[in-house]
Design a protein around this nucleic acid. Structure first.
Lengths: 199, 199, 199, 199
DNA sequence: AATGAATGAGTTTTCATTCAT
DNA sequence: AATGAATGAAAACTCATTCAT
C-alpha cells in the first residue's frame, strides 16, 4: 500500500538493476561499490538483487556481459560486404571510437574496472578477443602482403592495444574521435613513414 | 625451521617486504591481497609492515614506485646519442619488451593491477607518461615528416598502447620478445603496408 | 536458551542497544569497553550496533545524549512558579540527588566516564551548563543581596560542583539522599555559620 | 659515540621521564597517549621507560603519585598553628587555587584524566581524601556549632567539590584566583545569605 | 646502560549474504 | 513479489610489551 512498491515484470526489473549497477560500478569501481549502494540506486531492496543475480560477482559479470554485448553489436555493421576491406577497417575504427566516445561512463569504465579484477579478466579478454579476430580478418583481406596468420593476429593485438590507448584519450576528452580515427588508420596502413595530417 | 627470525637492518627488511608484497599483489591483485598474507610471505609480523610502510595503500604505492623506478632505469641506455634515432627506437622497444619478459610476475602484473585502482592510476599514468614522452621524442627525431607536436604525442600514445598490448602477450609467453620487437618496429615505421617478416 | 533472536522493530532495538551500552560503559569505562562486549550484552551482533549507531563514539554520544535528556527532564518540575524560589532550590537539589540515587549505575557513571574523554567533554559540559544556569537563576531570585550576574553564575558553578561531589557519595551509598539534601541546602543558604542538623 | 646517548644517574632520568609523561598525558589523555610518544618526548628509548617503570599503568600511576605529592606538599604551610582556624581555611583555599592556577597543564589535567580511568580512581580519591580530611579538620576548629564528625566530613566533601569545580574555571582562565578565593570562602562561611562582594 | 628490531593480541569497522515476515 | 532485520567472517590498523645486540 505504501508508495513505491511496484510489481514490475522480470525483464524490466533486470534492466533497471543492471542500469543502476553499471552506473555505480563505473563511478566507484568494483571493490568500492557495495551492494547496498546499488540497491539504493536501483530503488529496490538488496534481497531483490540477490534474487535476480545471486551474488555481487555475478551481478558484475552480468554488467560486463551486457555492455560487451552492446559493444559487439555496434560492430555488426562493419561486416558489410559492399565495402572494400580498407573501408571496413576504417569503419571499424570509427565504430570503436564512436562507441567509446558515447558510452564513456558505462563501457570504458567498466572495461577499465574489469581489467585488474583477476576474476573478470577472462570475460574482458573474450570481448577483446572478438575484436582482435575481427581486426585480424580485416587486415588479412586488406593487404596483398602475404603473412602467416600468426602475424596478422599479433598485428591485430597491437592495433587493438593502440586503439584502446587512444580510446582512453578520447574518453577523457583529450582528442576528438575524428582526429583519433585518422591517426589510427594512418598508423595501421603506413606507420610513421606515411602519416600525413588530414590527408 | 623456516628462514629464521633474525634482526635485520632496516634497509634490508624494507626490500624483503617489498619483494614479498610485489609477489603477492601480483598474484592476487590489490584488493584480494590482505596484509596478513603479505606478512606471512615476508616471514615477518603484520605490525612490521605498518611500522615500515604505514598502510596498505602506501605499501602498494611503494611497490609501484620501486618497480616503476626499475623500469625507468632500464631505459637510461636508450638515450645513447651515438645511435641513430631509428636505432634508439628499436632499442627502446627491445628494452621495454625485454624488461617485461624478465619481470612479468612483478612489473606487468603490478602495472595491470594498478590500473583500475583509481587511487593509484596517477602513479601508473606518470610512469606511462614518461614512456610516452620518450617515445614521442624518438619519433620526432626519426622522421622527416613535419608534424605538429600534438600528433607525435598522440602517435606515441598509440604506439605505447600497442606496446603494452603486445607486452601482455610476451608476459603471457604467447610470443617471443624477438618476434614482438620486429612487429612493433615494423608497425611503427610502415604499418601494414610494408611489414616483411624478418626483414 | 538465551532471550531469543527475534526480529524487533527498529525503535525497540535502538533502546535495547542503548540500555546495554549504558550498562557496560558504566561498568567498565569508555576505553575499556569493546563493541564486542556491548553486542554480547545486548544479545545482538556487532554489525547491528554499527548499522544503528555508526561508530563507537557515536554510540557513546547517544548514551550521554539519552541519559542527559532523562536527567534534564527530571528538572522540568522545578520550574513550578507556585513555589517560592527557596522551595524551588530545595526541590532542585532533591530532584538532582534523587535522580542520581536512582540511576547511579547509568547516569552517574556515564557522567564520570564522559568527563576525561576529551571528545565528549563538550556534551557533558552542555548538560552541566544547563544545570548551572538553572541554579544561577534560582539563586538570583532567592536572595535580596544584589550581586552581579557573574557572581551568581560562579556561585552556581561552586554549588553544582558541591552537588556533584555529594552526589558521588550518594551514588556510592555513603550518605542518604535526605541527609545530603539538607546539607547542600544548608550550605547554599548559610554556609557553616548556620548549619543545624535537622532544622 | 653518536650524539645524545648520555649516561645519566637514575634519579635524573626518572624525573626526565616523568616530566615528559606528565606533559604528554596532560595534553592528550591517558588512552590517547602511546608509550612511543612519551619515549620520544623524553628523548629516550622505549625499553628505558619499561626498565624504569614497568608498564604504562605504572608510569601513569607514578605521574599521579608525584603530582599528588607536590600538591600535598603545597598544603604543609596551612597547618601553621599561629593562624586562627578561619585564616587557615582561607589560606588553604588560596593554596589550592593557587596551585591549580600555576600547574594547570600538569596537575589539573592529570586530575581530570585520572578520574574516569577506573584503575586510577583509587589513587585520585586518596589524594582527594587527604584534602577532605584537612578541610574537615579546619571546619571543625573554625566553628562553634557542635556537629557530628560525619557532618563535618560531608560538608568538607561538598566544599572540596565546590573547590574543584571552581578550580576548573580558574584553570580555564574564566575567573581569577582572587575572585574565586573570596567566593569559596564566602560560600563556606555564610552561604548565599551573607555574600558580600569584596568585603 | 641503552636501543633498534620485532610481535601477540586486540580493536574498530565493513561487507556480502540470508532469514522471517 | 518484496523487504526490513540480522549476521558470519574477515580486513585494516594499533599498541603495550619484549628480545637480541
Amino acid at each position: 500500500m505504501a508508495g513505491g512498491t511496484k510489481r514490475l515484470p522480470r525483464a524490466v526489473r533486470e534492466q533497471q538493476m543492471l542500469d543502476a549497477a553499471v552506473e555505480v560500478f563505473s563511478e566507484r569501481g568494483f571493490h568500492e561499490t557495495s551492494m547496498d549502494v546499488i540497491a539504493q540506486r536501483a530503488e529496490i531492496s538488496k534481497p531483490m538483487l540477490y534474487l535476480y543475480y545471486g551474488s555481487k560477482d555475478e551481478l558484475f559479470a552480468a554488467c560486463i556481459q551486457r555492455e560487451g554485448q552492446r559493444f559487439a553489436e555496434a560492430f555488426t555493421i562493419v561486416g558489410d560486404p559492399h565495402l572494400a576491406p580498407r573501408e571496413q577497417l576504417r569503419k571499424a575504427i570509427e565504430v570503436f571510437l564512436g562507441f567509446v566516445a558515447e558510452n564513456r561512463s558505462s563501457w570504458m569504465v567498466l572495461y577499465r574496472q574489469a581489467v585488474g579484477q583477476q576474476v573478470f579478466m577472462g570475460q574482458v579478454q573474450s570481448t577483446r578477443d572478438r575484436l582482435i579476430e575481427l581486426t585480424a580478418g580485416l587486415l588479412e583481406h586488406s593487404t596483398r602482403e602475404p603473412m602467416p596468420d600468426q602475424d596478422f593476429h599479433m598485428m591485430a593485438v597491437a592495433l587493438v592495444g593502440a586503439g584502446e590507448a587512444v580510446a582512453d584519450r578520447v574518453a577523457g576528452g583529450e582528442v576528438t574521435p575524428d582526429f583519433a580515427v585518422d591517426l589510427l588508420e594512418s598508423l595501421a596502413w603506413r606507420g610513421l613513414s606515411g602519416k600525413k595530417k588530414g590527408e
